[in-house]
Design a protein around this nucleic acid. Sequence first.
DNA 1: GTCAATTCACATGAAAGAGACCACGGTCTAGTG
DNA 2: CTAGACCGTGGTCTCTTTCATGTGAATTGACGA
Length: 405
Amino acid sequence: MDNLDEKGKETLFNIFSRKESVFFNKSVLQSSYNPEIVLHREEQKKQIANILTPTLRGDKPSNIFIYGKTGTGKTLTTRYTTQKLTEAAERERCSLKVVYVNCKLKRSTDTEYRLIAQLARELGKDVPSTGLPTEEVYRVFLKVLNAQRMNYVFVLDEIDQIVSKTGDNVLYNLTRINEEHTQSQISVIGISNDIMFVDTLDPRVRSSLSEEEVIFPPYNAPQIQSILRQRAETAFNKDVLEQGVIEKCAAYAARDHGDARRALELLRVAGEVADRKNSKKVMIEHIDEAEYKIDKDRVIDIISTQPKQYQIVLYSIIYLHPGRSSGIFTGEVYELYKSICKKSNVSVLTQRRVSDIISEFDMLGIVNAKVISKGRYGRTREISLEIPEATLSKIKTILEESIRI
DNA sequence: GTCAATTCACATGAAAGAGACCACGGTCTAGTG
DNA sequence: CTAGACCGTGGTCTCTTTCATGTGAATTGACGA
């Protein structure tokens, strides 16, 4: 996907693809990149640092709850601050360990069992990914915790994912470990992009989890601009960005809730587009193309990795779609879905399930499904496609290929 | 014409089953000394 | 005697099905003006 040009290491591939690239170091624009400096988050950095300083004296810091929309730098800032904290701890010779877990990554840590197993693993104790009673995993985890006296800080990114799937049991247990085991002390930093999330928690969990709260407001357009500039400096070669490119990227991102990640992605893809067109500069019109491409790639990616049942449901919707002004109803989709299943020899799911599948597509933003009441004629979902016309035919062929046989 | 009752076609929730996956402990087997 | 193969048990997890309950407005039909 990315032939990062490491200086002096020119594979055959690089020689071909490298000629006239606008990029100098593309990885800077990747979302996994950790910049040296985190811009525009001074306030939050200070807050978090202040809350965490007690650890350096060996005391237990308050639990922190962090929230803000996607791409507002929550993860980055937290990582940055905790990194500095561990460095400081090393200097001061106090025992502190920060463990970072993303609760959503690759579905590997989105249940109670898996989260605890993952935490135990991070602490150096290997735990099977399945097969043990949950209690056993807790036991192992506690044992590791108590192996040596230490202060632990657990950073749980996208914490709302776990709770929405499995309830707040884990958090309750985690926050209570301190009471039972005095050997080591733990504190939790929860990161969420759903602000309403705290309200859904059990009051006991809520009060102990959000002893302190840090809010990350969206970036505004000028802020995004300076972030882009900072990264663009190392990411691109000199003077390849046309006047206004950064401004436009920032404007796009600011339009939907100041998501810096999006802005960076947009800039990166725009660069790729420029490369592909053998353009020496990244022009403004490349951004439009990049935006379209990002959208299209996302949709195609989601759809082609979907299980067959889902694909048939979606195909039914697409099939019914043309020439509809009024939207499509669940019943129609289900009838068509049933007949397609029978024809291609796939087992037929119940309407209940198909209903859920449709609402999953809704959440993915592929269709728009609104529950409406047709009065005497019942209640149903009114479904319409959210896929742009231009992408539609491509998707249709992908689905057709995948469904037949 | 007005108003409450009715009714439809699903939505939405809860519970439970099926099947895949996995670790663990016990038993069996073959190889070794 | 021991290492490794094999098997049954008991656990989690995901995807489904089954059963039950909920729901919002068009329609209906009774009623009064």
